[in-house]
Simulated assay, not measured.
Amino acid sequence: MRVLVADDQELFRSGFVMILDAHEDITVVAEAADGQEAIDKAVELHPDLVLMDIRMPGVDGVAAAAEICRRTAAKVLVLTMYDIDAYVYDALRAGASGFLLKDVRRDDLVRAARLVMAGESLLAPTVTRRLIQDALSRGTPRPALRRHVDKLTEREVDTLQQIARGRSNAEIAAALVVSEHTVKSHVSNLLTKLGLRDRAQAVVFAYESGLVTVGSD
């Protein structure tokens, strides 16, 4: 896994680099101190993953994430000081695959990087609801998206609803009484049909389309 670490605070940045580089299957290919530098290096080096601070001078993490997702195949994992950061939802809409708090434990940081690269999203159910609640209060829902749900099979709709509630493949398999392999197939199919990058984008779609609502089980 080739990683680009972008953070304007050198202490945080060097710490993340040290933690990631300590693992044989992870290589930090570059560092960036602001969003524009992150974009430039991502386009030049094509890392697999960009660890992106959400608040940086100049081009912030949201704008940088959007540009990187548009111009490269890299996955973006955003970092924030607070789990209620209003910018987190905007980053997810921009294409980020999830987020971590900056006080994340070292083992959890490595696990998060591997999960994102494996196609999972880092969106705890409670945090997802809070982010979506904020988005809805700011007028971002787009009910017209609901027509795209008709492209999905009944099981794919069920799977999308489970993803939107922050559940893992194992949890979805148990809830729908199917195998994890079947769940993976459903996830792959629905992402393709809806033209979505990953599970995080599926969460955004599910709430913005009204397929799942805040507070629903």
Rank of each mutant, 00 (worst) to 15 (best):
I84Q: 10
I84A: 05
D85S: 09
A86K: 10
A86Y: 08
A91D: 02
L92V: 07
G95W: 07
A96Q: 12
D103Y: 07
R105Y: 00
L109N: 14
L109I: 14
A112F: 15
A113H: 03
M117G: 01
A118M: 00
G119D: 01
E120C: 00
E120D: 00
S121V: 05
S121L: 06
T126R: 15
T128C: 01
R129F: 01
R130E: 14
R130M: 05
I132A: 13
D134Y: 15
A135P: 04
L136P: 04
L136T: 07
R138A: 03
R138P: 02
G139Q: 09
T140D: 02
L145D: 01
L145K: 00
L145G: 07
R146F: 10
R146M: 15
R146V: 14
H148V: 06
V149Q: 10
V149H: 00
K151M: 04
L152E: 03
E154L: 15
R155K: 13
D158G: 12
L160I: 11
L160M: 13
L160S: 05
Q161P: 07
Q161M: 14
Q161G: 10
Q162R: 15
I163P: 04
I163A: 09
I163G: 01
S168P: 05
A170E: 14
A170F: 10
I172S: 09
I172H: 02
A174C: 00
V178E: 08
H181V: 07
V183Q: 13
S185I: 05
H186G: 11
V187H: 09
S188V: 00
K193D: 10
K193P: 14
L196Q: 09
R199V: 01
